[in-house]
Every structure is written in C-alpha cells, then in structure tokens.
Design a protein around this nucleic acid. Structure first.
Length: 744
RNA sequence: GGGGAUAUGGUGAAAUUGGUAUACACGCUUGCCUUAGGAGCAAGUGGAGCAAUCCGUGAGAGUUCGAGUCUCUCUAUCCCCACCA
C-alpha cells in the first residue's frame, strides 16, 4: 500500500496542465460560454492568508464543473495594484511603489499557483500597467466630455493622516476606512463624478438582478437612499430691512412630509449653510452665531453624531422665515443636528411630529403644534400617522391625500415642488497621492480644464524623487515642474497638467471587460467579443464591496453601455458573497494578532487538495467560520480514504449486471451525482462533500469496486481535488486529462 | 433609531413541498495494534434513567393528525446604514 504523496502529485499535474494549456480560454465561440469572475486582489505586502483563496477555490470548483459540462469557460485573475495600501507599504519599506507592487504580485502569484487554479494566466492584467490605465483614463475622458466628470470646490472629507481627500464611501463612522483617523471637512478643488445622474437606474435595475443576494441589493438600496418628498421654499426676511422692501431671499428645505407644513414652527440650517454668510450684516447676534459655528467645526463628524444626548443651537436673530402655507413668521436657528450633506442642509422643524425637532423645541421653548391626531405632543413627538388637524385645507385628510393636495398647492403657488432626494453623493474622484492613475486633464488659463487628446493617452505616471504626500492638498506630482508644465491642447498656450490622481476604485470599475480582450490597443474591448462573453455570469467576492466597488462598477458599466462601448446594461448576472475565514481564536486573521495562517505552509504539509476540500467543507459558503487545523486533517483523511480505494479489485459490470446492485450501490451513486451537481450549482459545497464522504464510507466496506462507479466518483471529486483526481484517473489507464471528460 | 440576517449536540453544521431531528466532519470515551510525534483500526457518543421510557431545534403562544420548517409576540447575536429631515 502506497502512501498518498501530495507533493509529487500536485507538482506533476500542475506541470502537465501547463504543458497541455488546459486552462487557456478558447478563442472560438462555438460553445455556450460561462464567464466566472473573482474579485481581484490588492497585492499587499503581507501576502495571502488562508482566507483569501476561499472564494477563488469556490469559483474554481464551479469553473471546472462547467468545463466538464461542455461550456467555454472564462476564469481569469489579475491585480488591482494602485491605491493607498500599495503606496503605504512602499513608504513603510522605503521602496518605490512600482517595485513593491512587482514583488508583491510575484509573491501572490506563486501562492495562487500552488493551489491549482484554472486561471488563464494569458489574460492576466494589472491596473498599474500603462496599457491598462490608458483605458481607465479614456473612460474618464468620455465622462468629462459628457459632463459627468466635473470640478468642484465643495468641502470634502479629508483624512489628515493619509493626507488625501476621500469619497463618502471611504468613511466608516466618520473615520477614514483605511487608517481610522477622524476625518475633517476641507474645502478644496476636486474632480467629482456625477454618479447621482445614475441613481435612479442603479436603484431600479436592481430589480432586474434576481440572482443577486437580497442582502447585497438591500445594502445598495439603503446606500442610494432614495426618498420622495418635496422641496419647500421659505422666504427669509431681515427685520432691519422690513420697511426698505429689500428683496427677500429663499431658504429651501427638503422634506418627506410636506403635509405637516402647518406644524412647522421654526427652521434650522446647518452650520455650513450659505444663508449665514449671505446675511452676515443682518444677523444681529452674528458674533454669537459665529462662535457657535466655530465650535461646531471643531467637533469632528464623529462627535457631532455621537453626542446625541443634547441638541444645541443658536437663533439667527434679526432674521425670520415665512411659512408659505399660513404666512406665519417663524425663527431660524443654526444647529449642528442638521447636516449640510443631506437634502439642502436646512430643515423645516415640525416639533409635534419629529423627535429631534421636539427635543430642540422643548429646550429652546418653541411652540409645538399638533397637526396629526393620535398622540399627545406635549409629552412626546407623535411620529405615527394620523388624520390632519390644525392644518387648514388639509384637515381631516390622511397622509396620502394630504401629501397629494399639499404638493399641488405648493406647485400652484410656486413655493415648492415634488422632489426626490438621494443619500448617494457624487463620487469624489481625486486623490492627492502619488500612486494612482493621473487624471488626463490640462489646465489652461484661457481655455480652462481641457481634455488630453485621446491619441496622447496614456498620460504616464512620471517618476518622482519623493512620492510622500505633501500635506498641502496637492499631490506629489505638483513638484515635477517639467511634467506639470505643458501646452494647452486647445490653444497651444501654456498649460499645467492636473496633478491629482484617481482613487483606488477606478481601475476595478471596469476590469472584467478587459479580460475579454486584454491585448487590444485600438479599443477598450472588441464589441463582438464583448457580446459573446458579457455579462459576467457569476461574480464572487467579499460583502465589504457591496456599497463601493459594486456600485461604482455598475455605474461605469451603465455609462459604457450608454456610449455604446458594451452591449448590456448590467455587468454581473449572479453575485455571491464569500464568508470570512477567521483565525483559530475566532478573531480576524491579522498580522496585528499574530494569528495569520499562510496557505503555503498548509499546501506544503497537507497539500493543495486537502486545503481546497477543507475550505469548501467548513460550513455554508457565505458564513464566517473559524479555521480549525483538525478539520483540515479531516479533509486530508477523506482523501486518504479515497486513495485506499486503489487497492480494491476493480471489475466491470457486464450489460448492467452489477454485483453490488442488491447492496444499493447504483442507487447511492446516482444520488451522489445528483446531489454533488446541484450543490455545486447552488454553492452548497459543504453538503456536496458530505455526500461524497457517505459514498466513500459505503464502498470502503467492500473488497471489490465496479470500475464505472469509481470513474464517475473521480469525476465528481475532480473539481474539489483536481491534482488528486487527475492522478487516480491516469492510474486507471486513462491518457487524457479528467477535465476533458464529460460530467456524469 | 432604520434595514438585513441568524439562533439546532462539547464544536463546524445537515434536514426536498410541514412527515423517523442531529446526516457528514471535528472533538471526546473505551478497547486493539504499535510503541516518537497530522498515527491507524474497531466500538460508542443529544440529555436524564439500571431499565422500559421520558425530555429535547433561543423563549412564549398559535395553525395542523403532525412544526427545526408556517403565523404572531419576545429575547440574544452578527452585518450594513445612521441626528437621512
């Protein structure tokens, strides 16, 4: 009895597959296609830990089954290598980011190669390759031409530690998602992408994605945050100007409940609101107001939201607003419980029916009017629905009727209109860092921001002596004078290059298209090839990308669809998220805790096939699960039990006459084939493996084994333990790869 | 505060349309064989009891001949968002 020697087996078949070019994607389009995609990794300095390959193994099992089922399979892998992690790693280790990325990719790739994936490495791409980011820049230019990329001077999120601006999506509880620093608001020039133009389509088209997990779709819906309501205009008057008939200004608010307008007894603006600056000379207590604003500014976003215990604010004395529905004069406050980010940065306060407004009104002794029946507004805000009272022409109506009526009234009197508001903000698209795609724009004093002509793409990232962030709000590129100074492509006069770079998410927002046609230098992707391969049939990756990468990716794809580059409006037909693998101690695997397990060691000691079987057997695929070395040994033991089957005497069933028929073997085999096939399709890998174990436990008890049953079993096992199955397959006397066989 | 998910042995977890709860694996117990280190093999393993038997899927109610599964209420944990107007 020979011992199962995983090392020689795995090496042997990896070489064989490479030699036979078994995983090269076919260029012919004569078979049905299946495009299965992993979220590609950042090649960080730490290398892979055993959690990373879980999703890759799952897609690999799936891809192998689809191959055997006769599909033309596209299963590629690449590197998302721009962005802060790579740059920070480079700074820490005092090497150039390009060099760091090269080394890290080498390391990652060697780790992946050992696990035996079906990746077609001929389609490997790298987002930092100029031939790749040429097209990232090209997409930006198309957006610029369509007015979807614009410059803004609005205050944005600034991370003082990473020294760069960030998008809303890059924050976590008011802190930098990457380094945990509290972010500041900083007004600065930024490139912004108008993702809000696509908000409705990004939301509505989720309905066309039945094979996306509901939880991910729900996260996207919440992130887009559509709410229907109305914009209402209030006139603002300054008491000193009353007689002089000074033209009044308007203060606009967004509300989902315009029907409660009769209950509005005061207004609040956010500390950053323009109204305050515009009325500086009319606000009689401007000093006090200014002091309050300064204090509010000092508080980070975090403090502003965390200190919910007591609301604060200051009245803008000398100003009054007119409630358009009853012409009542009401006071205006500045208070930091109103956020500049959401709606118009101002609210109409209805203290009878909103808890925050009620709390504020109680504190500052403001009138509370009941306009919905059903509660006691003296005791607390009544936030449920009720019939309207004290509401003039809305009295006696319910929510639906009164909303319709008030919106009609607002529109007729030109003091408001029906409106939709989104939580989604335009995508702040520039970073003041070195390691990113240069934004292909030239600034000219005469012509303004001018697109770099397409023939001059890519705008290559120049070499620079110091790529540390400057901290001045300018990227390190700004110091390279001979790169910055150039000619305006429009008028030929002196121009300066844009020195901001693109955010980390740019390169990953379209990469699945490049795999289809990786070497094309005439177009981003050949449209005929795209029509065949797109959309991605199955996309597997971490849930943490639900509201960033997956929204950005859908946005870019829809844009490319609109300008005719691609044939389909949605990029990913089916989406599945991977559950984390935690460390043995139940915590996240991290260098910090010293609990990281390197797949190289596992492969060395137990073999890639054991690793693959174990990770698929751990539990339901989308659930988090702690690593357990004993469980891994269990997987190895299963393979050893299969290995022992080699010692059994094989016999051929003649004309359906199987000696083991009475024992129920054919029935069990068919059940196993059915269960494994269905479970792979549904990503229930743990039960697929359990069923194979049942099969092996059963046949282990006999001295003989029907050859056909063993052949079929090996085919079922092959996607999970490819080297192992290939070895036993060839031992049976087969000359071709088991992956060229038909799935049972 | 809003949204989503989950809750079954010592552990990871199974259980078609409601139909023998705990498959498969880990761990543990006992024995055998060996005696250097991921050992192997055999038997056992939800709880209580000598036993027949009784009790068991977070808690409580309901529908049903029958509920882990369906309905309602509650509790706990996890994830996402959050002073969202």
């Amino acid at each position: 009895m020979e011992k199962y020697d995983h090392k020689s087996i795995e090496l042997k078949w990896q070489k064989y597959w490479q030699k036979e070019k078994l995983y090269k994607t076919s260029e012919t389009r004569d078979k049905p296609k299946y495009y299965i995609l992993d979220m590609f990794p950042y090649p960080s300095g730490a290398g892979l830990h055993v959690g990373h390959p879980k999703g890759y193994i799952a897609t690999d099992v799936f891809a192998r089954m689809k191959m055997m089922q006769g599909y033309n399979v596209l299963h590629p892998m690449a590197w998302d290598a721009f962005g802060l992690p790579a740059e920070n790693y480079a700074l820490e280790n005092k090497v150039h980011p390009r060099q760091a990325v090269e080394e890290n990719i080498k390391k990652f790739k060697s780790q992946l190669l050992k696990i035996g994936f079906t990746y077609d490495w001929g389609r490997e791409i790298n987002t930092t390759d100029p031939e790749y980011y040429k097209w990232t820049q090209w997409i930006f230019l198309q957006m610029f031409k369509k007015g979807l990329a614009y410059e803004s001077h609005e205050p944005i999120n600034w991370c003082p530690s990473c020294q760069t601006g960030l998008a809303n999506e890059d924050l976590e509880n008011g802190k930098c998602e990457r380094c945990g620093s509290e972010i500041e608001r900083k007004p600065m020039r930024q490139w912004v992408l108008k993702i809000t133009d696509y908000a409705d389509r990004l939301l509505n088209d989720l309905e066309k994605l039945p094979d996306w997990e509901e939880s991910i779709k729900e996260m996207q819906r919440n992130w887009i945050g559509r709410s229907e309501g109305a914009i209402v205009q209030f006139s603002v008057i300054a008491s000193e100007a009353k007689q002089s008939n000074e033209q009044d200004n308007k203060l606009e608010v967004f509300t989902t409940r315009p029907d409660t307008l009769f209950g509005c007894t005061y207004m609040v603006v956010a500390p950053e609101h323009d109204l305050i600056k515009n009325y500086e000379l009319r606000i009689t207590n401007y000093g006090e107001v200014k002091k309050y604003i300064e204090q509010a500014k000092k508080k980070s976003d975090l403090e502003r939201t965390e200190l919910q215990k007591e609301k604060t604010g200051v009245e803008l004395e000398g100003l009054m607003a007119i409630n358009p529905v009853n012409n009542e004069e009401i006071p205006i406050f500045v208070a930091d419980y109103v956020m500049m980010d959401y709606g118009t940065g101002a609210i109409m306060a209805v203290p009878g029916h909103d808890e925050r407004d009620w709390e504020f009104a109680k504190k500052y002794d403001l009138p509370i009017i009941e306009v919905l029946k059903g509660g006691d507004v003296e005791k607390q805000a009544f936030t449920s629905d009720g019939l309207h009272v004290n509401s003039g022409f809305l009295d006696g109506l319910d929510k639906k009727e009164s909303l319709e009526k008030i919106i009609k009234w607002l529109e007729k009197n030109k003091v408001g209109k029906k409106a939709v508001n989104y939580k989604l903000k335009d995508w702040v698209f520039s970073r003041q860092r070195y390691w990113g795609e240069p934004i292909p724009i030239i600034h000219c004093t005469k012509c303004g921001a001018v697109a770099v002509p397409e023939k001059d793409l890519p705008v290559k990232l120049p070499e620079v002596k110091h790529y540390e962030p400057t901290g001045t709000g300018e990227s390190p590129l700004a110091n390279i004078k001979d790169w910055v100074n150039t000619k305006c492509p429009k008028c030929g006069g002196p121009g300066k290059r844009e020195t901001n770079t693109m955010p980390q998410w740019a390169g990953s927002s379209w990469y699945w298209l490049r795999y289809i046609d990786p070497k094309n230098d005439k177009a981003l992707v050949d449209k005929k090839k795209e029509k065949y391969w797109s959309p991605v049939d199955f996309y597997v990756g971490g849930a943490e990308h639900a509201t960033r990468h997956l929204i950005y990716a859908r946005f870019w794809h829809k844009f490319l669809f609109d300008i005719g580059v691609v044939n389909y409006p949605e990029p990913f037909t089916r989406l599945q998220h991977v559950g984390l693998i935690l460390a043995e101690d139940g915590r996240k695997m991290s260098k910090r805790w010293g609990n990281v397990i390197n797949p190289d060691e596992v492969v060395e000691k137990y073999g890639a096939d054991s690793l693959r079987v174990y990770e698929m057997f751990m539990g339901p695929f989308s659930g988090a699960c702690a690593w357990n070395t004993n469980g891994l040994i269990g997987a190895r033991r299963f393979l050893e039990n299969v290995y022992k089957l080699r010692d059994k005497k094989l016999y051929d069933c003649q004309g359906g006459d199987c000696k083991m028929k009475e024992l129920g073997l054919p029935k069990l085999l068919h059940k196993t084939i059915k269960k494994v096939s269905e479970d792979i399709e549904n990503f229930h890998y743990n039960t697929a493996i359990a069923q194979m174990m049942i099969f092996v436990n059963f046949i282990s008890g006999f001295e003989v084994l029907p050859r056909g049953a063993f052949r079929n079993f090996l085919k079922l096992l092959a996607p999970f333990a490819p080297h192992f199955a290939e070895e036993l397959w060839h031992e049976l006397g087969n000359k071709e790869s088991i992956f060229k066989e038909k799935w049972p």
